Amino acid sequence: MKFVCYTDWVQLPESANELFAQGAKDSVFLSRAWFENLTAAGLDEKQSLALACVEAEGKVLAILPLAKCTGNTGYALKHRYTPVYSLLLADDDQPGTLDCLVEGLSRLPVHSLLLEPVSNDDNRIEGFQRGMEATGFRCNRNFRLYNWIYRVQGQSYAEYMVSRPARLRNTIARKKRKLEREHGYEIRLFTGGDVPQAMSDYYAPYSASWKANEQYVDFLNGIVAGFSRPGWTRLAVLYVQGQSIAAQLWFVVHGKANIFRLAYDEAWKAYSPGSILTSFLMEYVIDVDGVEEIDFLTGNDAYKQDWMSERRELFALSCVKSVKATGRYEQFVDSLKKILKGS
């Protein structure tokens, strides 16, 4: 078992793909497509890639994706849009793999690590933290974000909606009738390879929303392209007389639906186009995709609580190498030990 730190994706052995495929089952944000696009479009000129790995007999057993900046701090390879972060860890001999990983990290010219956002119940991160502390790092967790989810538990969309607040159900029904009566509307769903071509209909309402212009167009387009190839993307667009007034981009993979980006034209706010679209996609991912979990990702917004039922907490894990202050007495003792050892 050995520790290796790669600085480019092309250096990774092919067996790393198995680990990323396993990570994608936990979260689409632990997939190779996510991290590679983040590296290509999300790192600034002051950052460099560092893939801290453990290998044994040609197999990659662990990957900790890091961004190295000037100085002695390593950061989680993340983006403003990153909703959760973790290390990738194979099932084989996890204690031994973690020992090798933290021992290798302790030898690097890195005095501190900042990993975020990490889940409070992530066993891999917990094991990593214990290993770092045993290696001489002081580790702390600080609250960063809330995360709202819904566990479907075999419900149909109709059953799911019955459990939602009556206020929400009534608003959706009323606004649908109002929009249809006064203007007429159409909802189109784009999936797979059709999504990248339809992204202009996402950007149109986004630019007319409270969010102003999308700051990370290249990053978002790269993710959409990468996630559309395996069929992970769902883009729903609400049109009024051919004009896109609202759009939502979701990612669906391995039984989990991730509500990634939402936008609507504020001129149409009175019709609650966002709620209409969310209800449309909820019905699709529950009844057609058959998902087991729906994740509203980060944020504690009140409207998310109407759709979800369980709130989780995400933290920042900081690990700082302990440096023992050495006074004159300690220096004298150390010198004496060296003298005695040499005599």
Rank of each mutant, 00 (worst) to 15 (best):
C319A: 15
E116P: 00
R229S: 09
W210M: 03
I187E: 03
I294F: 01
S156R: 09
L77M: 10
L87T: 09
F315Q: 05
S119C: 06
Y271I: 00
M132T: 04
S335H: 11
F219T: 00
V102I: 10
Y329Q: 06
A158E: 15
F143S: 03
L145I: 01
S244A: 15
E182M: 07
V28Q: 05
N37A: 04
E293R: 14
A204S: 14
P109D: 10
L87F: 01
G242H: 07
G23E: 08
Y75A: 01
N142Q: 06
I259K: 01
Y239G: 03
C69F: 03
L12V: 07
W34N: 12
L113M: 12
L297I: 13
K46F: 12
A208L: 15
R177P: 06
G58W: 12
S112C: 14
L89E: 09
V323I: 14
R32V: 03
P230D: 02
V320F: 06
P83S: 08
E330A: 13
W9C: 05
V28Y: 03
L189E: 01
G242I: 13
G222M: 02
L168P: 09
C139W: 10
Q129I: 14
R107V: 06
P205F: 01
G342N: 15
E36C: 03
K321Q: 10
A257V: 05
D306S: 11
L105A: 05
H254M: 00
H79T: 07
D194G: 01
R107H: 11
S335Q: 12
G274V: 08
D92K: 13
K256N: 10
I286K: 08
Y185E: 06
S15D: 14
S244F: 04
F190Q: 07
A247E: 07
L297N: 05
E55T: 14
Q241Y: 07
Q197G: 14
M199H: 04
E313H: 13
G136F: 07
V118R: 03
V162F: 07
L235T: 03
L262Q: 15
A134I: 04
W268K: 06
K338I: 11
L51I: 07
I339P: 00
L105Q: 08
C69K: 15
Y160K: 06
S279L: 07
D99T: 14
M132K: 09
N140P: 02
S106W: 03
Q155K: 15
Q243N: 10
A50R: 15
